[in-house]
């Protein structure tokens, strides 16, 4: 089985966000960048599937500038076999980004193409399913369980008020949600081995697309609240505030 994992480099979720001068992007100064947390579920799924099968190949694919190579090596250290760095910048339009990925993936002979369900920077949540459409492949998004057998995948995905169970033949595109697995930490031997694994660099160019970022701004601060009191004795005051001020009861 040949599995592609498409990953993204994002600011650490604990990072404090400040807006850069142009007002359309964050200021990356002092921000630590890591692999997108949801992509780790995809990486773990790929490695575990290959381990279970005892054969196959896992490939990390990442679009970005050269800094993404460090993130790629995180996946190689976890156990991915090799990587492709699509060297260039993505577009604000997810479809333009998806086209670059689809062009590369097409004809790659992949049985599975895995994504995280979203990237915790722009929350685009679209490149994975768009790649599926462009490649005319089956797609399930935000999966929390996966079984692969006899050339087909059975997945579960959480929907409002239930769990959807679906099947599709391979090849397929899946986006991975928390709950699918527990990603392994890259071990020290893995970190050393990652340097020696193949990392192919392919220059690409994404079209501008039809989405334009107008601005990026910090959300308005919540007005200061108040402590209504201490212990159970404060309950009546809270009820009064919820009833007459907030009007939510």
């Amino acid at each position: 089985m040949k599995i592609a994992v498409c990953i993204r480099r994002v600011p650490d979720t604990t990072a404090k966000i400040t807006i850069a001068g142009g007002g359309t992007a964050i200021d990356p100064a002092g921000v630590k960048f890591v692999i997108n947390p949801y992509d780790e579920f995809a990486v773990e799924a790929a490695i575990a599937l290959k381990e279970a099968a005892g054969a196959g190949e896992t490939v990390t694919i990442a679009l970005g500038d050269d800094s993404v190579q460090e993130t790629i090596r995180t996946t190689l250290a976890m156990g991915i076999d090799r990587a492709v760095h699509l060297q260039g910048t993505g577009s604000a339009d997810g479809l333009a980004t998806a086209r670059v990925l689809a062009d590369h993936l097409r004809g790659g002979g992949y049985d599975l193409i895995l994504f995280g369900k979203l990237a915790v920077d722009d929350y685009g949540q679209q490149v994975g399913p768009m790649v599926a459409e462009l490649l005319e492949l089956p797609c399930a998004t935000a999966i929390t369980a996966l079984e692969v057998a006899d050339g087909s995948a059975t997945v579960e995905r959480e929907i409002e008020g239930g769990t959807e169970v679906a099947t599709c033949p391979l090849p397929a595109v899946l986006t991975c949600d928390k709950g699918l697995n527990t990603p392994r930490l890259p071990g020290l031997k893995g970190i050393m081995a990652a340097k020696k694994k193949p990392l192919e660099v392919v220059p690409v160019e994404a079209a501008a697309g039809q989405a334009t970022i107008v601005s990026l701004a910090l959300p308005p601060e919540r007005p200061a609240g108040r402590i209504v009191g201490e212990g159970a004795a404060a309950v009546p005051a809270l009820i009064e505030a919820l009833t007459s001020e907030a009007k939510v009861l």
């Binding site: 930490l185 890259p186 970190i191 340097k195």
Partner: peptide
């Protein structure tokens, strides 16, 4: 180096 940072981060997370 990148490896040194990676080692540090993995142990830190553990």
């Amino acid at each position: 180096s990148e490896e040194e940072r990676a080692v540090r981060d993995t142990v830190r997370q553990w």
